[in-house]
Design a protein around this nucleic acid. Sequence first.
DNA 1: TCCCTATCGTTCGGATGCCGAACGATGCCG
DNA 2: CGGCATCGTTCGGCATCCGAACGATAGGGA
Lengths: 147, 147
Amino acid sequence: MEPQQPWDDSVAFSLVRLGAVAHRRYAELLSDLGLRPRQVGVLEQLRAGPMSQLELATTLGVTPSVVVDMVDELERLEAVRRVRDTVDRRRSNLELTDRGRELGRSTREVAAGLDEELLAGIDPDHARTLRAVLRRMLPPRGLRQEA
Amino acid sequence: MEPQQPWDDSVAFSLVRLGAVAHRRYAELLSDLGLRPRQVGVLEQLRAGPMSQLELATTLGVTPSVVVDMVDELERLEAVRRVRDTVDRRRSNLELTDRGRELGRSTREVAAGLDEELLAGIDPDHARTLRAVLRRMLPPRGLRQEA
DNA sequence: TCCCTATCGTTCGGATGCCGAACGATGCCG
DNA sequence: CGGCATCGTTCGGCATCCGAACGATAGGGA
């Protein structure tokens, strides 16, 4: 029975704490653009092309009802458009507008700036390792295996 | 104008995402003990000795009303005791019970297990670097500078 | 001694973010 | 045509946090 490390020393703790810090800070920076963190996922996903709301929901790992709210706000900002699918009129294909693409660019600048904030005073070699390791630890996007 | 990295490639994104993942998983593991993640902070802080609820609030970075709920549940689990300060009867000094110390040990085991889960397949050298870098990035506990 | 004010814990209402059930509109297939 | 599935939407609920207000208690000055 070795001496136990306090919870503070666990990687899990650091991730939970830093995740919360990064989220709060990101939300703060995004508010200048009139965006919330969760909208960024929408803008990112739509870069590859139009997508139905249900596809978006599964990709982002949220329920369809959450997508409704996210898209409502983005439509109010004229960043995305809901376009009824002509062949299956139940589907709304979401399209990025020019404004949406511009907002997307801004969010990526914000993210880059936040990375600089977070990595200030971190050895560049370590920062590279960090980036790589975090990517490896991240479960593949959009796969929500429930119990 | 260099090509912008998508949000997915930012350290901030990885931290937010992994933080959420770790939090969910930690909550899941803790539920076997009848605990929530936020209670663990209380158990950890009280290891050093008794503490008033207000001290705990500032240390954990939450409002006093949140502490009330956290302590209510921990008292129901008989993990902590509220002891009226005899010299200043407004204060409740929170004390860890034996059951509380035992629960604390269990939570540290859970955290260690979660770390193993999260670091599975990660090079041990990289894992060490990760731990060190995350600790450095973490802002000092209990310092909530508001605007 | 007696107020006046500050502090501690508590209660309550509100904001936020997410889920799940139910429902209308629409599509599909026998 | 009729029954069933699917998409988007609405609604209520749950969890977590905050901030305002309040009672109990403390402390200092007239």
